[in-house]
Nucleic acid binder design. Structure first.
Length: 325
RNA sequence: ACGGGUGUAGCUCAAUUGGCAGAGCACCGGAUUCCAAAUCCGGCGGUUGGGGGUUCAAGUCCCUCCGCCCGUGCCA
């Protein structure tokens, strides 16, 4: 059973990324054959600064490894290190109906906002389909908002197979990761880069503390009884604390006499402790950056091996010569 | 494709007959606050869409290319 997941390096990872997605994806590496890639080709539609894209891609690899991705179990690679992706994208594009892409929400959203959409954004679901199909992926863990794109991949694969009367492409299934964790940002809205309310995972301790202190609260006085359920600080604390610790803090909220400043300090300490091992691993990785590059190269080699196999099947099906021979 | 409009800081927009590129918001730092918010103080931020020309001097005038918006046409 092969699972596949990609993440766009469009910025530094934050708590929302981790608790909403990364954590669940990494957990799957133990039971499945996992392919994880850094979707730099996708990021290209957003990040227009070459130096920045390179930095984000490298940081993404470091972060994922620091957060527990085991390269000896899972295959980690950079999307752009697998050129077979681009070739498969073209082949798929020739069987993709315009109407299918016009329905996709990333494109529709941008149109609705009156923003300029380029062909990259429009055809992005085809690239995503290629990402998935190139490795005969069985399951693709995604959030609910991405299920549509998996359906697109299935549609394209099915259409290709039917058109050429071949079993060249393996139909993947969406594996919906129910993100049980609520991760509010510093303004109380859902944590998201586009809201500018994120708390970055690996920022320096001092910055992190400052960021946590800036979380929006109500103006209840120090001695007032407070409601933990509606407080972002408490909601975030739940991500790091066990049930007993959560109950203890909730009791202090309700009792009154504890201010939000103290709650934030508690949250800060809990977060620092929670991510301490990852921070330590990260420091080691940064000190051995060559090792990270080696891991990515080894991952790319493995990914290309599988990709070549599938691509040859696809090429043969539509009448192109097989390259691998 | 033609016509009109438009392009200035991350965002919304100023800038007199051609005369030192600015403000508000956002962001960062400080004061204040249990923390945050509000308020006050300070700071960062620019190839004025690109290129060429006129001029002592161009955001401003001329040429050219590009992006975006509106209208019309062409093609099915």
């Amino acid at each position: 059973m092969r699972i596949l997941s990609g993440i766009q390096p469009t910025g530094r990872f934050h708590w929302g990324n981790y608790f909403g997605a990364i954590r669940q994806y990494i957990a799957l590496q133990d039971n499945e054959q996992a392919f994880y890639f850094i979707a730099d080709l996708h990021a290209l539609t957003t990040v227009r600064d070459p130096a920045l894209l390179q930095e984000y891609s490298r940081e993404a690899a470091i972060d994922l490894l620091a957060l527990g991705l085991k390269p000896e179990q899972a295959t980690l690679f950079r999307q752009s290190d697998v050129p077979e992706i681009s070739e498969l994208t073209w082949l798929l594009m020739t069987v993709t109906q315009m109407s299918l892409l016009e329905k996709c929400h990333a494109y529709k959203d941008k149109q609705a906002k009156g923003l300029a959409a380029d062909a990259g954004l429009f055809t992005y679901p085809v690239l995503m389909a290629a990402d998935i199909l190139l490795y005969d992926s069985d399951k693709v863990p995604v959030g609910v908002d991405q299920v549509q794109h998996i359906e697109v991949a299935r549609d394209i694969a099915g259409r290709f197979n039917a058109m050429y009367n071949a079993e060249a492409l393996h139909l993947p299934e969406a594996y919906v990761v129910e993100s049980t964790a609520k991760v509010p940002g510093t303004d109380g809205e859902k944590m998201s880069k586009s809201y500018g309310n994120t708390i970055e995972l690996f920022q320096p301790a001092k910055k992190l503390r400052k960021r946590i202190m800036s979380i929006k609260t109500d103006s209840a006085a120090l001695e007032d009884s407070k409601v933990p359920e509606t407080c972002s600080v408490f909601t975030l604390y739940q991500l790091f604390a066990d049930e007993q610790q959560q109950n203890a803090l909730a009791d202090r909220y309700r009792a009154g006499g504890m201010g939000y400043g103290e709650a934030k300090q508690t949250l800060y300490e809990a977060a620092m402790e929670y991510f301490a091992p990852a921070r330590e691993r990260r420091e080691q990785l940064v000190a051995n950056i060559d090792q990270v590059e080696d891991i990515l190269q080894a991952g790319a080699t493995r990914a290309r091996e599988k990709g070549r196999e599938v691509l040859d099947r696809v090429r043969a099906a539509c009448g192109l010569s097989a390259q691998g021979q």
